[in-house]
Simulated scan of single mutants.
Amino acid sequence: MAHFFICPNCGNRTAANDAKAGFRGQPKGCDKCGFGFLFELLDDYYPAPNAAFFACNQEGNVIACGRGSYELTGLDDQGVIGRPVASVLGLRFDAAPDPVATALEWGVRQLDKPVQVNAEGDLPARAVADIFPAYDDDGGLLLVLTPKS
């Protein structure tokens, strides 16, 4: 059975039989851009061309900014890495409970969540959030923000 993976850096989607890189036990890396780890998707997922990717650790702190992150927020990697994703991006979800906290606590996907993004020094923008938990021992999540036009 094939598993679907997505790279938080470039958005490349791949399919593989295992989440590990051969017999080494290391997480799969991206074959396209060389990024160090991929997120497994339970279903095939097609991000919008203008979607922004943010990878977070188990505490919800940003560990990597991927494709589209600068275009959406105006913030570079150095300005956001190590900081809580909800506060650095100024995320305000339309409905409670907070989908980021739910994904971290319960390890469940949160799809099509309307959100206002108000990154530091930027104007507020409407977006749709798709949140994928990391299915490994380290935890964490992948936040995909698609701007609304």
Results as ranks from 00 to 15, higher is better:
114 P>M: 08
63 I>L: 09
56 C>M: 14
32 K>Y: 14
48 A>D: 09
77 D>M: 13
145 L>W: 00
12 N>K: 15
131 I>W: 01
143 L>V: 01
84 P>V: 10
30 C>V: 05
17 N>E: 15
124 P>D: 12
83 R>V: 07
95 A>V: 11
84 P>I: 05
114 P>H: 04
5 F>K: 03
29 G>W: 10
64 A>E: 11
13 R>T: 15
81 I>W: 04
30 C>M: 05
66 G>M: 07
135 Y>R: 03
21 A>W: 07
60 G>R: 03
17 N>Q: 12
34 G>D: 07
106 W>F: 15
61 N>G: 11
54 F>H: 02
121 G>Y: 07
22 G>E: 10
123 L>H: 07
47 P>A: 10
80 V>C: 09
124 P>M: 08
40 E>D: 11
143 L>P: 00
105 E>F: 12
120 E>Y: 11
84 P>C: 14
111 L>P: 01
73 T>L: 10
99 P>W: 02
8 P>G: 09
7 C>E: 06
134 A>M: 07
48 A>R: 10
91 L>R: 00
7 C>Q: 09
83 R>D: 06
149 S>V: 04
3 H>Q: 14
133 P>C: 02
103 A>F: 05
70 Y>D: 08
104 L>E: 05
49 P>E: 14
49 P>C: 08
24 R>G: 15
104 L>D: 03
118 N>W: 13
120 E>T: 12
118 N>K: 08
4 F>E: 10
109 R>Y: 09
142 L>R: 01
45 Y>A: 02
83 R>M: 15
97 P>H: 11
1 M>E: 04
61 N>E: 15
123 L>F: 04
21 A>T: 13
129 A>Q: 06
14 T>S: 13
67 R>S: 13
78 Q>D: 15
9 N>F: 03
53 F>M: 11
57 N>G: 08
94 D>H: 09
85 V>F: 01
20 K>S: 14
79 G>I: 04
131 I>Y: 00
91 L>D: 00
91 L>H: 02
148 K>P: 00
2 A>R: 13
13 R>G: 14
22 G>T: 10
90 G>S: 13
84 P>Q: 13
11 G>E: 06
23 F>L: 13
63 I>P: 02
94 D>F: 08
36 G>E: 14
51 A>K: 06
29 G>R: 07
13 R>Y: 12
80 V>T: 09
57 N>K: 06
14 T>K: 07
71 E>S: 14
27 P>T: 08
113 K>R: 15
8 P>H: 06
106 W>S: 15
35 F>W: 07
61 N>W: 05
40 E>G: 05
43 D>S: 11
52 A>C: 12
49 P>K: 11
63 I>R: 04
15 A>Y: 07
90 G>C: 13
114 P>V: 07
49 P>A: 13
54 F>E: 03
112 D>I: 05
88 V>K: 06
121 G>N: 02
130 D>S: 05
57 N>M: 05
52 A>E: 05
146 T>V: 03
44 D>H: 14
9 N>T: 09
80 V>M: 09
132 F>V: 03
144 V>L: 02
127 A>P: 00
59 E>P: 04
66 G>Q: 05
107 G>R: 08
145 L>H: 01
65 C>P: 08
133 P>V: 00
66 G>D: 10
130 D>Q: 03
